[in-house]
Amino acid sequence: MVNLEDLKKEAKRILEEGKIKYIIGYERSPNGMMSMPAFIKNPEDAERLTWDPSCVYNLTRFLVDEKRRKAKEKKPDTRPVAIVVKGCDSRAVVVLLQEKFINREDVYILGVSCEGAGVVDEKKLTEKLKGKKADKIEFSEKDHFLITSDGEKIKIPAQEILAERCLECRANFPVIYDEVLGEKVERRPEDPFKSIERIESLSKEERWAFWKEQLDKCIRCYACRSVCPMCYCDECVVDTISFAVAADTTAEEKAQKIKWIERSPDSSENFVYHLVRAIHLAGRCIDCGECERACPLDIPVRLLNKKLEKEAKELFDYEVGFDPEKPSLASSFKDDDPEDFIR
């Protein structure tokens, strides 16, 4: 079990030593049981840090923002930033390292174990509590969560309220860290691609109907892109849709800013956007499920990425986010990659 006091003590120590710029972690939200991201600069504020099953967010996105901010500063503070990571988030750090987007010395990784469980799905929990408000949620003994609601303690089996991605998780313990808290509990899901197989078992027309219904809902708010730690391109391919072509627009500009996708949230445009996003995340998505959580219309965006994760595993035996030294999926090949689909 992660001892919260150890986390606070460790946070306090590294801040007092002054080797760390600040800590990106979680703190209790003033509203209800969910936690929220915290940025801790002063050692005395380390008390605010928390770690419980409501820490759903993938904080590695803030490493991307930090790098951007640092690049703009005239005299940047070059000390590393500390970050609290779960197993899945640590794999996001690995991918950022693998792509040389961040350097290992720029980040101090405080790993926390998910204790053989994971994080909760807020919607599932709300449903389970039938309208009652939870004040606190804790890890309990193996496979259970302890929920405090109106002063009453309820024990719920983790399987019932775990986030979808946690049910299919293959890394519930950080794969890279400077300091780690909690024990390594082996928890191998029986079927890591269950949600994908469910859709694959449908007929072609049923699959189309499913995706058509889901993706037609998309309003193209790009929340999935904003929240994704891997969507860090300086200019996204869909940004050029707001590029206005005027009389004095040069041919070069027109050639560089091609409107691949129209701005209107039509069915065909939504499909192109989501498919391209999925392809761009192939071999990079670590399945933190943030896109799905951030989606205001509950589109199962995660499934598209998960499908490519499955194919990368099955076709190319490639697993994302375990080894920062390995070449990435799209920048490597094997002589015996499958080519039975090629004529």
Binding site: I199, A278, L304, L308, E311, A312, F333
Partner: peptide, 16 residues
Amino acid sequence: RRRIALVKKLLEFIGL
């Protein structure tokens, strides 16, 4: 070959 394989799988997945 790698990339196209992934695109092909994805297009089939959405029902094309």
